[in-house]
């Protein structure tokens, strides 16, 4: 009897917490299917005739497909560059205890992003890189690289050094060990780092705001297309937000298992 009571309590708490966390998301989803009049209605309407006009506005009237492509290209390249540079860096930091180097990389992340904007703007505009993917990718690397380096360096530390030593005895070089032994063992860590870095880049507002223009506009900036002077199209904002969240959500759902184990693996080293 007592056991049943506990179970009820447990699942009750689960439902309550889930409701609190999911409420804003559900509200957004519901609002994205409402007309402007229904959105502001009081008391809130839970029974209404759903409309897809907001989604039509997002994908038909506004060019969200293009913003989608922009965001994907920028995030993918930023993560790619970060992995290319960050994985060897993280390995080196882990194996040779280059703590100071790790700190410098973190420092870039700790500095307020806005302090980079002016110098970047000057450099990119002089180089004629404004409104190109290059400027955006390079700026987003500042966000993604520290994530990759920090997650991966603590992950590499959990891999027993004996593995490398025995490979060395067999005559393997550092590069060979890194590429053939360490990387294949680091799948969960790399997936964690990639997912997190991708989401951070996907959601970045500040850098894209100044460095992108009409052609390279990314999704978080495009949401503001629905905010006009003294007029907010709530339905459009909600539909756009749903559309932006969806890929990040799917990505997280698929890789969630690895994300959690990857994070804890780095955190608790035996």
């Amino acid at each position: 009897m007592l056991k049943v009571g506990y179970k009820i309590l447990f699942y009750g708490a689960v439902v309550l917490l889930a409701a609190i966390v999911l409420m804003p998301f559900l509200w957004m989803l519901i609002s994205s299917l409402k007309t402007q009049v229904d959105i502001v209605a009081w008391p809130p309407k839970f029974v209404f005739s759903p409309t897809f006009q907001n989604y039509y506005k997002v994908f038909g009237e506004q060019d969200f497909i293009r913003y989608f492509i922009n965001s994907t290209v920028v995030a993918a390249f930023a993560v790619g560059v970060s992995l290319l540079l960050g994985l060897p860096a993280a390995y080196s930091i882990a194996r040779f205890s280059q703590r100071r180097l790790a700190l410098v990389i973190l420092l870039a992340r700790l500095m307020p992003g806005i302090s980079f904007l002016m110098p970047w703007y000057i450099i990119f505009s002089r180089l004629g890189l404004m409104d190109t993917y290059v400027a955006l990718v390079l700026s987003h690397v500042l966000i993604t690289l520290p994530i990759v380096v920090w997650i991966m360096s603590s992950y590499f530390e959990t891999i027993p050094i004996e593995l490398e030593e025995s490979a060395m005895v067999d005559g393997a070089s550092r590069n060979y060990i890194f590429l053939r032994i360490i990387l294949p063992l680091s799948g969960p860590g790399i997936i964690t780092a990639t997912t997190l870095a991708f989401i951070f880049s996907w959601n970045n507002f500040l850098f894209s705001q100044v460095l992108s223009m009409e052609r390279t506009r990314t999704l978080p900036i495009a949401v503001f297309n629905f905010l006009s002077y003294a007029d907010i199209d709530w339905g459009g904002v909600m539909a756009a937000s749903v559309a932006i969240m969806a890929p990040a959500l799917v990505l997280t759902m698929i890789f969630q298992r690895y994300v959690v184990s990857g994070l804890t693996m780095g955190a608790v080293k035996g």
Partner: peptide, 19 residues
Amino acid sequence: QESQLTTKLTTEFATNSSS
């Protein structure tokens, strides 16, 4: 959007490299 417009114009003009 208006506040983005101000941010962008300010950055472009302040760095003297606006187009």
